[in-house]
Simulated assay, not measured.
Amino acid sequence: MSSNLKHYDVILSPVITEKATAVSEANQVIFKVASGANKSDIKAAVESLFKVKVKAVNTLVRKGKRKVFRGIRAQQSDVKKAIVTLEEGHSIDVTTGL
Rank of each mutant, 00 (worst) to 15 (best):
K67T: 10
N27R: 10
V29P: 09
V79H: 00
S13Y: 13
S13P: 02
V57A: 04
H7A: 12
Q76Y: 04
S48Q: 12
A20Q: 05
S48I: 04
S3I: 08
F50K: 05
I11Y: 05
K65G: 04
F50V: 04
I72P: 00
Q75S: 06
A56I: 02
E87N: 08
H7K: 04
Q28A: 14
L86V: 02
S13D: 15
L60K: 06
E88R: 12
D41C: 12
V52G: 09
I72L: 02
V94F: 13
G97H: 11
K65D: 09
V10I: 15
K39H: 09
I30Q: 00
A26N: 15
K81I: 15
S24W: 01
T59G: 02
K6R: 12
E25H: 14
H90L: 01
K63A: 10
D78W: 04
K63L: 11
V54D: 09
V15N: 00
I11Q: 04
A37I: 09
E47A: 15
V10H: 03
L49V: 11
T95Q: 05
Q28H: 08
I30M: 01
I30F: 01
F69L: 10
S77P: 09
K43C: 03
K6E: 11
A82L: 09
S35D: 11
L98P: 01
Q28P: 10
S13Q: 14
F31N: 07
T17A: 07
T96I: 12
G64T: 05
I30E: 01
A82W: 09
S3Y: 03
V33S: 02
V46G: 08
V46H: 09
Y8V: 10
V79D: 00
V52N: 04
P14N: 14
V10K: 02
A45G: 08
K53G: 02
H90Y: 15
A82Y: 10
S40L: 15
A26V: 04
I72D: 06
T95G: 01
E47Y: 07
E47F: 08
E47R: 05
H90I: 01
Q28D: 13
L5E: 11
N4G: 04
Y8D: 07
D78L: 04
K19Y: 08
A82N: 07
H90N: 15
K67S: 05
R62S: 15
K55S: 13
K81P: 01
T96W: 05
G89N: 02
G36S: 10
V15Y: 00
V29K: 05
T59N: 04
Q76A: 15
S77M: 06
K63R: 13
L98E: 13
R73D: 11
S77A: 13
V54K: 15
R62H: 14
N4E: 13
V94Q: 07
S2G: 07
A45W: 08
S2H: 07
N38L: 11
I42P: 03
S2C: 03
I83S: 01
K32Q: 12
E88T: 01
N27Q: 09
L49D: 02
G64K: 06
R73I: 11
I30A: 00
Y8A: 09
D9I: 06
T96R: 09
G89P: 02
K63G: 03
G97W: 14
V68C: 04
V15K: 00
R66T: 14
V61T: 13
K53F: 03
R73T: 14
A44L: 12
